[in-house]
C-alpha cells in the first residue's frame, strides 16, 4: 500500500480535509496558533531536508526573514496584498539567494556548515537593523493579505489564512515526501552514511546538498511569507539566531523520518509554550526546557519515531 503511487496524494488530501474540518470547530486563538505553527513547521521542514544528509542549518531564519520582508515590503511599496503572489515572490527571492549561497555552502560539512549558515542569517539581521528607512530594529507593519481578490475580515480572515497555510503546507509536505522517496532524495540518506561511497557510485554529493539547501530555502521563504502576513509585523528578529534555533529545535523534536511529525512537533511546541507562558509567567522557559528534556530522553529519535515502527528500530543510531 505504502508503495503505491497514489499513497502520497491520498494521504495529502485526507490530511488536508481533516485540517480544514478542524478549522471549522476550533476557536480563533487556536486557529491562529495552528497557522503560525504550520508556517514555522514549513521552515523546520527545510532543516529536516538537510538533516537527512547529515547537515544542520542554524540559519534558516535567513529565508524565514527574507520571505517575511519580501511580503512586507511588497505590500507596503507596491500595494500587492495577494497572498499567492506574495508567496511566489518570497519563494523566488529565497531560491535565488539560496542558489548563490549553495555554491559556497555545499563544500562544508558539520559545524562549519552550521556556523556559515548562522553567519549568513546574522549578516541579514545586522543589515536590516541598520536600515532605519524600513524601521530598523523596530521593523514595519504589514497590512492584511487578500486571497485572489477576496478580502476577508475578522474570523473569515483568520480562517482564510489557516486554509491557505494548510493547503501550502500539505502540498509542500507531499512534494517533499515524493522527493524523499525518489532516487535523489534517498541519496541524501546515503550521504549521511558515507559520502565517499556516494561519490564512487557516480552521484554528485555537492549537487545533492545544493538542491536540498535550495529546497529548504524555498519552504523557509514560504513559511516567512505566511508568518509575516499572519502576524502583521516583520522585524529583523526573524533572522536572529534564536529564531533559527527554534526551527532546529522543532526539527530535533520531530526527527527526520516523518514529515507529518515536523508539523505535529511544531504544533506541540507552540501549544506548550503558549500555555506555559500564561500559567507560569515567571518560569515558562523552565517548563519549556523540562518538556524538551523529557521528549529527548524518552524519544531520542523524535516524535517521528512514534509514527513508524521501521524507524523505531534505529534507536541506537
Amino acid at each position: 500500500m505504502t508503495n503505491s503511487r497514489f499513497f502520497v496524494p491520498v494521504c495529502c488530501v485526507l490530511i488536508f480535509a481533516v485540517l480544514v474540518g478542524i478549522g471549522f470547530i476550533i476557536p480563533q486563538w487556536a486557529m491562529f496558533l495552528a497557522t503560525m505553527a504550520l508556517a514555522k513547521g514549513l521552515v523546520a521542514l527545510g532543516i529536516v531536508i538537510l538533516m537527512r544528509a547529515g547537515l544542520v542549518s542554524f540559519g534558516q531564519g535567513l529565508y524565514f526573514c527574507i520571505g517575511a520582508y519580501v511580503s512586507g515590503l511588497m505590500a507596503n511599496w507596491t500595494g500587492i496584498t495577494d497572498i499567492v503572489l506574495l508567496s511566489i515572490l518570497g519563494v523566488l527571492v529565497s531560491v535565488i539567494l539560496a542558489t548563490i549561497c549553495a555554491r559556497l555552502l555545499s563544500g562544508y560539512r558539520g559545524i562549519f556548515f552550521a556556523m556559515l549558515t548562522l553567519s549568513l542569517s546574522m549578516i541579514l539581521y545586522g543589515a536590516l537593523s541598520k536600515m532605519s528607512i524600513i524601521g530598523g530594529t523596530d521593523g514595519l507593519n504589514v497590512s492584511a493579505p487578500t486571497f485572489l481578490g477576496y478580502a476577508p475580515e475578522g474570523r473569515a480572515l483568520g480562517f482564510s489564512l489557516y486554509f491557505y497555510t494548510c493547503l501550502v503546507s500539505v502540498i509542500a509536505g507531499g512534494l517533499i515526501r515524493v522527493y524523499f522517496n525518489s532516487e535523489r532524495g534517498l541519496t541524501a540518506l546515503a550521504i549521511r552514511d558515507n559520502e565517499l561511497r556516494v561519490e564512487y557510485l557516480g552521484s554528485s554529493v555537492k549537487s545533492a546538498i545544493s538542491s536540498g539547501y535550495i529546497m529548504a530555502a524555498a519552504v523557509g521563504g514560504l513559511g516567512g511569507v505566511i508568518a509575516g502576513l499572519a502576524i502583521g509585523h516583520v522585524d529583523p528578529e526573524y533572522a536572529y539566531w534564536t529564531t533559527s534555533g527554534e526551527f532546529v529545535f522543532v526539527a530535533i523534536l520531530s526527527g527526520f523520518f516523518s514529515i507529518t511529525a515536523v508539523f505535529a512537533s511544531s504544533i506541540v511546541l507552540e501549544v506548550v509554550r503558549s500555555f506555559s507562558n500564561l500559567y507560569f509567567p515567571n518560569t515558562w522557559q523552565l517548563v519549556l526546557g523540562v518538556f524538551l528534556l523529557i521528549v529527548i530522553l524518552l524519544l531520542p529519535n523524535g516524535l517521528g519515531s512514534l509514527f513508524s515502527k521501521r524507524r523505531r528500530k534505529g534507536g541506537s543510531e
Partner: peptide, 16 residues
C-alpha cells in the same frame, strides 16, 4: 519578540 507577543495578545483576548 514581537512575533510571540502578537500570538500571546491573541491568546489573552480570544482565549482568556
Amino acid at each position: 519578540g514581537a512575533t510571540k507577543q502578537v500570538q500571546e495578545f491573541r491568546n489573552l483576548v480570544q482565549r482568556e
